[in-house]
Amino acid sequence: MRKDKWIPYGLVAPYILHFAVFVAFPVVFSVVLTFHRWNIISPMEFIGLDNYVRLFKDRLFWQAIYNTLRFLVVHIPLQIVVALALAELLNRTVRGASFFRAAFFLPVIVSGVVVTILWQQLLGYNLGLLNRLLTAVSLPRVAWLDDPDIAMYSIAVMATWKNVGLYVILFLVGLQTVPAQYYEAADLEGATDWQKFRYITLPMINPTIFTVVVLSTIGGFSLFIEPYIMTEGGPLNSTLSAVMYIYQQAFQYYHMGYSATLGFFFALLILGVVMLQRRYIEQEN
């Protein structure tokens, strides 16, 4: 009997161990770090709230936050509109729907590095395909990645292309849960395609829209690979994302304490935004 008593604990032990080492400890340790100065080599030095004070005065960090928000403002609506439009098309009985479904999903599973390098070729100033097409029709070249006013939006379009397949699948599932009878009833009421979409589809897939907004917000906030490879945060720090800045602080300058502070603050920011979104969508309902 006594032996049996320990079996459940034994069974959950691997998970608890994993959780403690890879989740709980890093979280607690990074909170502790926010009150210290540490460059990995020298011993940690307690500095109280200095890191937080520095954060609020750090113009580059706020620039990175602003850049990330600029990215999100384009990326999230674009992602939703494109994904929903593609899902609507696939939801109709089009020929080769399964091919398109796979094709749209392909970029999601391809490595972000590969996709980024591919788009670098597309968007290059002199030899990029897009600019060659523009010059072919006698239009001026565009500095897709070299103009501080444009670069972040180019990255947003690329990130949308990379991720949209996932959201197409989510929307497709959402659309297929809307019973056909609602559309039939609306047909009899004289609704046009747009009215059916506006008054039936949109309200009924609201939960899916919320999921997509939250997922792409969280995903968008962690923007890193694309600017890191394509622009290294330039030109003039215009594509420096928050996560990239946190990474630089930690692994280029070894400001581990400050980097942890930025990370901690940034996590709170994401939480706040997602909670706001949730409240807004609940009100809408």
Binding site: P179, Q181, Y182, E184, A185, D187, L188, E189, G190, A191, Y199, I200, P203, M204, N206, N285
Partner: peptide, 18 residues
């Protein structure tokens, strides 16, 4: 259907839940 001036009551009512 929209131009036949017909109304239908469905088995599952098809009332819009929202």
């Amino acid at each position: 259907a929209s131009e036949r001036d017909i109304a239908m009551v469905f088995q599952n009512y098809a009332l819009y839940p929202h």
